[in-house]
Amino acid sequence: MTDIDEAMLIAWVDGELDEVTRRRVDRAVAEDPALAGRLEMHRRLRERVSGHYAPVEAEPVPPAMRALLEGGAKVVPLARPATPRWRNWGIGGAIAASLVLGLGIGHLSGGPSGPVAVSDGAMVAQGELASALDTQLASAQDGAAIRIGLSFQRKGGGWCRSFEGQAVAGVACRERQGWQVQQLVPGAGQGTAYRQASSGDARITATVDALMEGAPADAAQEKAARETKWR
């Protein structure tokens, strides 16, 4: 009946028609309800697809990506429970390399001595670090081997704490299985090469900023959170 094809309707919706052609489509649509229905269907489809992904743009950028662009080239990417399937790009290798560097020990998983174990593909605090995260208050930690920086609620709920030790510093968040380490950088301890890393480290600050909802906990809130075992 008309010479308006599907590609033209779609180009109308995508704003790709020149003025003359657009008017031609408009006239045809005005005379043909079926054609109008198809145009409306394509308009709704575009709205539905673009609307579905639009919220991603409004989300805060993950700290690992931000850190990559803000000068922290050696930052450990965020660990997440699922096995990453893009591992062949070297992300897994980067994690391993950073950890070995930072801890100064070769054994990560299974070893009872290190501060971090790998459990279900995620880095989880263990030993001294885990107990510091569980019990130590930022307001009372004179002489402790591991110092707690900030305790805070993360966006979406749950407690996180930043920490700093001789070998490692970082941020961990409380999950069901324990303290999941979100970021790990070399501590201020041994060797001059890594001295710049501390809880004042810009990389850790960026992670805390990206994760934190509102303000850090004060001494009373921190104590109350410890009482409820950070749940």
Partner: peptide, 8 residues
């Protein structure tokens, strides 16, 4: 993961 790899 894809985005991170692209940035790298």
């Amino acid at each position: 993961d894809l985005c991170q790899a692209a940035l790298e």
